[in-house]
Computed example of a mutant assay.
Amino acid sequence: MAHGGNPVFNGKNFRGATQAPPAPQAYGQNSYGQPQYGQAQYGQAQTGWNPAQQGMTQNQLQDMYNRPAAGPADTGRMTFDDVIMKTAACLVAVVAGAAVTLVVAEGLAYMLMIVGALGGFVLALVNTFKKQPSPALILAYAALEGLFLGGLTRILDAIYPGVGLQAVIGTLSVFAVTLVLFKSGKVRATPKAMRFFMIAMIGYAVFALINMVMMWTGAVDSPFGLRTSVEIFGIPLGVFIGLLAIGLAAFSLIMDFTSIEAGVRAGAPQRFSWTAAFGLTVTLVWLYVEIIRLLAILRGSD
């Protein structure tokens, strides 16, 4: 299973995948699906296949044999449909949270944005290190992130009209293209790509930390810190950093898809579809933030 891109999946490996209940078997079949033909256990008399003694008619017995084999959903295992439905629920929570900060008074919206940023960060850590997924905590995380994204969008959209809609379209486009490339097999989370990803992620994290400290201490007074105060050939540094970050987020989606596919194939318990949905939500939130920030930097340099 791929690791590294989204820490949500790291260390979990969908624990409990082997704990999913076995597929139900028709009466009178052993663990290999072969009829027992009235075989008696040691010290017991053979009873044979007498439908009357088993309390079943011949038609009922035949109907049981004719039923299709139990699928993953019937045996409590994770399926792609489960992941899709739970991811959709998380995204609805994100949209609902964003709608709140978009319609309330401006001062309250900013306060809710801060609450969403801090609360979302805390719940992200809780859900990441929690061994068993909690649907309530995951949905709460999504709603808090919605508050943060709604407030951020409101601020930037007031300065650069239309940037919010452009960021939504950009996020959906990157997600769709990444999914198509993954399904086609053209892009995979190979060990070599993973190593490059980890190196790039560490570099990006160091830059983000330095930039944040310099903004807090007043070392730079640019709205985006070093991203806009430093230029390379007349192009803001934030453009290059933003493109790198979007590429990293897109590859993180590839690793999310890989982890989900591995979980389904391993027969992971159905509850881990919430873990998969949470992982995708984390990555999509990150992707949206990077896209709207890049768009704002590009619009500000016009």
Results as ranks from 00 to 15, higher is better:
residue 284 L to M: 06
residue 84 I to A: 09
residue 102 L to E: 07
residue 124 A to N: 11
residue 257 F to T: 00
residue 8 V to N: 09
residue 78 M to R: 08
residue 118 L to N: 04
residue 105 A to N: 14
residue 130 K to I: 03
residue 224 F to C: 00
residue 10 N to I: 06
residue 127 N to R: 02
residue 168 V to M: 09
residue 13 N to R: 10
residue 4 G to V: 11
residue 111 M to W: 15
residue 288 Y to L: 08
residue 158 A to C: 04
residue 1 M to R: 08
residue 302 D to S: 15
residue 2 A to R: 02
residue 170 G to T: 03
residue 279 G to R: 07
residue 203 G to T: 08
residue 262 A to Q: 12
residue 161 P to W: 13
residue 285 V to I: 15
residue 273 S to P: 06
residue 238 G to Y: 08
residue 176 A to C: 01
residue 302 D to E: 11
residue 66 N to M: 13
residue 184 S to A: 10
residue 89 A to Y: 07
residue 252 S to M: 14
residue 163 V to K: 04
residue 264 V to T: 03
residue 256 D to I: 04
residue 285 V to L: 10
residue 298 L to M: 10
residue 68 P to Q: 07
residue 147 L to F: 12
residue 186 K to S: 11
residue 108 L to P: 09
residue 216 W to M: 14
residue 188 R to N: 10
residue 242 G to M: 02
residue 127 N to M: 04
residue 133 P to I: 02
residue 179 L to F: 15
residue 170 G to V: 07
residue 205 A to R: 09
residue 41 Q to M: 07
residue 24 P to Q: 08
residue 58 Q to T: 14
residue 76 G to L: 08
residue 181 L to M: 13
residue 300 G to R: 10
residue 104 V to D: 05
residue 121 F to I: 09
residue 271 R to W: 12
residue 278 F to T: 08
residue 140 A to R: 04
residue 162 G to R: 13
residue 179 L to Y: 14
residue 215 M to K: 12
residue 175 F to P: 01
residue 20 A to I: 03
residue 230 V to M: 08
residue 251 F to G: 00
residue 142 A to G: 05
residue 16 G to M: 05
residue 111 M to C: 12
residue 80 F to M: 09
residue 76 G to D: 02
residue 11 G to D: 05
residue 82 D to V: 06
residue 116 G to M: 01
residue 126 V to M: 04
residue 125 L to E: 12
residue 1 M to K: 07
residue 195 R to H: 11
residue 8 V to E: 14
residue 232 I to Q: 00
residue 41 Q to V: 12
residue 25 Q to C: 04
residue 153 T to I: 12
residue 110 Y to R: 11
residue 189 A to Y: 03
residue 74 D to H: 13
residue 276 A to V: 01
residue 46 Q to C: 12
residue 264 V to I: 13
residue 91 L to A: 00
residue 223 P to W: 06
residue 297 I to P: 08
residue 92 V to R: 02
residue 201 M to T: 02
residue 68 P to W: 06
residue 272 F to R: 12
residue 202 I to K: 14
residue 78 M to S: 05
residue 187 V to I: 15
residue 197 F to W: 11
residue 26 A to N: 11
residue 93 A to I: 09
residue 46 Q to S: 15
residue 137 L to C: 05
residue 240 F to M: 01
residue 45 A to T: 14
residue 206 V to L: 05
residue 5 G to A: 06
residue 150 G to Y: 06
residue 154 R to L: 09
residue 3 H to S: 11
residue 64 M to R: 10
residue 282 V to D: 06
residue 122 V to K: 05
residue 176 A to F: 10
residue 100 V to P: 00
residue 246 I to M: 07
residue 299 R to Y: 11
residue 164 G to N: 04
residue 135 P to D: 03
